[in-house]
Design a protein around this nucleic acid. Structure first.
Lengths: 252, 252
DNA sequence: CGCAGGATTGATGTGGTTCAAGGGCGGTGG
DNA sequence: CCACCGCCCTTGAACCACATCAATCCTGCG
């Protein structure tokens, strides 16, 4: 291994990236260095402003989200950001974002320019592959979010979101197949799912009443994963890396 | 210019890409070559199957969409694909898509592997920049779609979609600031906007009654762009780099 | 103890869905 | 040249998932 000792603060990145590609020692070093210059921010802090087309960071701990506010106060959360995820534009030249990235809890971030720049070099093939795969996964869930919002009921959306978080947090080493931390308020969940906070509450209650999951003391416990996957039309297997799923022929 | 004559079949790509970066002669040649080996497909043809993680093509003419079918028949269209757009995964390794790409009209496509591979080389900087910018624009509209579906009313969604198509088709050289072709059925529009076909119909009628736009003989005419942008909370200026240019200017 | 933010619950309103039945129109065949 | 057919658009009526408004409850915390 490299000269720098692993701290558990870099472990989310390590988990998230090493799931996609095996990393060489000098690549691991680069990741470990991320914890050397970190910044702490409180909830509601804007980590990446709308209109900003630079400023790439990586989330080390805590939760954030990319969100879009409408003038009349409506908010849509584009996606949740958990440890290991990149904050800011991925590709250049970037279009100035209409959405801002905001901390949802206390967060720790570090500048990711080095990491992302290194991945463009020829001598960091593993890093390159891992970051591309992470971007592909993000794009995948972005499409899932579209399907969720466009064609699923509140009940299906809630179940689907919990499955997404289960997978992503497990990939970051922050949860297992059984359970994961859940620091989000119901209002935040509502703004992810595109429903009102009141309805998110009732939906969550129903999901719990049905025995699909448990939510206690800031932790979600998945009780019936297979049933949940069936309800939400889940298409990714959590076992293995990227195993594809049979998708029904749409023409029937 | 290069040895290959421009045909108007390659012009959508030319428009779409040259809007983002100035291209060198050898890059223009590569684009022109795209029309040499094309394929024609009828509506409903699956251009890119769900689960496929390869097979990159570019759309030369006609319309397509990436869609996800749910087992009970619900369909969500993730995004519309117009001439100049890439079909298939952008980055490798790609996660097998849960969504399929399907032709909505008669379409002409060509293999884009060469184009995309060339953009990774050092000697195609303009192409690289242009394709990255195109990907960034696609990602931008992907987020707009999330906001649309999550927090906007059917009326707002409809107006917003028409503004999106106005911009994208103008960028491909297929329309102006005033009008663009509209070959989509109301059912397709409904599946983009996440509403029922009946409601899409009523919403479209209202938008027309309000004098925001005209829809006749397969063509949309934008009548009150500023008002529409205000209604839909539009955040992109059409003036600037994305302004369409007539093909003739480019053929010089 | 009292406060504040989040969770919960009830009552009522509405945007949108669903079902069902026409209407227009281009294409095709007799 | 007309009759018919299929696809799409349009319209009406009933229904429902979810929004909105307004309390109230709970819990951690200073």
């Amino acid at each position: 291994m490299g000269a720098i000792q692993w701290s558990n603060r870099s472990s989310p990145i390590l988990h998230a990236l090493s799931a996609f590609a095996s990393l060489a020692p000098h690549e691991l070093d680069l990741i470990a260095e991320q914890v050397l210059f970190t910044r702490f921010d409180a909830p509601l802090t804007e980590l990446h402003a709308a209109g900003d087309s630079a400023n790439q960071r990586i989330l080390l701990s805590g939760w954030a989200c990319r969100q879009r506010m409408l003038p009349d106060g409506r908010r849509q959360i584009i996606n949740l950001i958990v440890p290991g995820d990149i904050i800011g534009p991925r590709q250049r030249p970037a279009i100035p974002a209409a959405s801002a990235t905001v901390a949802l809890t206390d967060v720790e971030t570090s500048d990711a320019s080095n990491l992302l720049a290194a991945a463009e070099q020829q001598d960091y093939p593993g890093l390159r592959k891992a970051l591309h795969a992470a971007a592909a996964l993000e794009e995948f869930f972005s499409r899932e979010q579209i399907v969720r919002l466009g064609r699923q009921t509140a009940h299906e959306r809630m179940v689907h979101l919990m499955l997404e978080l289960r997978l992503r947090l497990a990939a970051a080493g922050l949860g297992s197949a059984d359970s994961f931390p859940m620091p989000l308020t119901q209002e935040v969940i509502a703004d992810v799912l595109g429903v009102s906070a009141v309805h998110a509450n009732r939906t969550l209650q129903q999901v719990r009443r049905e025995g699909l999951l448990e939510l206690r003391r800031g932790r979600v416990r998945i009780l019936q994963p297979e049933l949940m996957e069936s309800i939400a039309n889940w298409t990714l297997t959590t076992t293995g890396t990227n195993t594809p799923q049979p998708v029904s022929d749409w023409q029937g």
